[in-house]
């Protein structure tokens, strides 16, 4: 099929300019005042909850909890390995330095 290169920009601009202006819904002022009243009576807990529950806080919070868990598990593991190494070396030291043990 032969591709026709249309004057796309003209079409885009024509379409954008063909959009008619419309009237805002009725009673906009009443709904604005109702929203303002609702906001005034929002308790401090509502505001705190909506602040804390924002994805921008939830996601980093979850990452921190996961990282803390990983760190605690790895720190615990390395500590127990160190104990094992320490035990082994101290036991070996005792054996090697005990004169009553036969070689």
């Amino acid at each position: 099929m032969k591709m026709i290169k249309p004057n796309i920009l003209d079409d885009i601009v024509k379409t954008a300019q063909s959009v008619k202006k419309v009237k805002a819904p009725a009673n906009m002022y009443a709904s604005v005042m109702a929203a303002i009243e609702r906001k005034k009576h929002e308790s401090i807990w509502d505001k705190t909850a909506s602040f804390v529950l924002r994805p921008a806080l939830i996601v980093p919070g979850l990452i921190i909890v996961i990282l803390l868990n990983v760190w605690m598990i790895t720190a615990k593991d390395s500590k127990s390995v160190n104990f094992a190494v320490e035990d082994y070396t101290s036991a070996t030291y005792v054996v090697l330095n005990n004169e009553n043990v036969l070689p």
């Binding site: 419309v22 805002a24 819904p25 709904s31 604005v32 929203a35």
Partner: peptide, 25 residues
């Protein structure tokens, strides 16, 4: 100003119901 603001918002959010809510905001 409601018509003016509603039309700008409507061109960006592209939906009547959403535009009414955003205009109110």
């Amino acid at each position: 100003n409601e018509d003016l603001i509603y039309n700008v918002v409507l061109s960006i959010v592209k939906n009547e119901a959403d535009a009414a809510d955003v205009t109110q905001d």
